[in-house]
Design a protein around this nucleic acid. Structure first.
Length: 230
DNA sequence: GCCCAGGTGAAGC
DNA sequence: GCTTCACATGGG
């Protein structure tokens, strides 16, 4: 096998090295260490901000598979057609904010996004119109950036934190969704019921500067665990 | 038919 | 502050 085919291994080892300080920052947190052991190799993405934001606006109370289907329809309807050179496959790019802003609510609803359609459209219009400059957020503090994102319709604390973490690389963002909620309750508060606001307060102070990685490990751990039970 | 899904925002304590 | 509920749509 040619050496070039082993490039992935070098990349992987480099990534494992980069992750060392993350693991070291959770020395006494047994749930996190358990979750890390269960899914080594996990990495945070760095997505394009508008694509990430729009996708998460479409995500609320939807299953992940269905979100993928909605996004695929959105791309087919409003994206640019692209031919993959290697296999000549037709694919569609994620549509720009201006294109989504120009679409009618009915057209968007036809992509099966339901009540999320007006939110996506209004957010696209605010971004296309310059009311919110996504490029500017990377220069702000996490608090300022979160405040700016939550001014968009359909964007609350959870979705804002997803965008901060997955698009802008704010590694201390900690989105609490239903899966993380289950993981936090099961692993940290097994014997008493804790409300969502209290879980958010706990997460905000407990996990420190690498909270985003902790969140991803807990998310993945909760999902794998749930599957094993069925 | 019923319940839930990578939530949000408004309304009522 | 916290809890409850409606909001489309599809799958189990």
């Amino acid at each position: 096998m040619p050496v070039s085919d082993w490039g992935w291994l070098a990349d992987y080892l480099q990534l494992e090295q980069d992750l060392a300080p993350v693991l070291a920052s959770f020395p006494d947190d047994e749930p996190i260490r358990k979750a890390v052991a269960a899914c080594r190799g996990l990495r945070l993405l760095r997505q394009a901000p508008w694509e990430c934001l729009a996708s998460f606006i479409l995500s609320s109370t939807k299953q992940i598979v269905q979100i993928q289907q909605i996004v695929a329809r959105l791309c087919e309807q409003f994206g640019e057609q692209v031919i993959v050179p290697q296999n000549h496959e037709r694919v569609y790019s994620f549509p720009l904010a201006v294109r989504v802003a120009a679409a009618g609510e009915g057209e968007l609803r036809a992509c099966k996004m339901g009540f999320r359609a007006p939110n996506l459209r209004a957010a696209a219009q605010m971004i296309a119109g310059g009311e919110l400059d996504l490029d500017r957020l990377s220069g702000l503090s996490i608090h300022e950036a979160r405040e700016a994102l939550t001014r968009l319709p359909g964007v609350g604390r959870k979705i804002a934190d997803c965008v901060l973490l997955f698009a802008y690389g704010f590694q201390d963002a900690f989105p609490v969704d239903v899966w993380v909620m289950k993981a936090l309750r099961g692993l940290y508060f097994p014997r008493r019921s804790v409300s969502l606001p209290r879980l958010q307060k706990f997460a905000a102070t407990h996990f420190g500067p690498w909270a985003g990685y902790a969140q991803q490990y807990l998310f993945h751990y909760a999902r794998v665990h749930a599957k094993l039970k069925e």
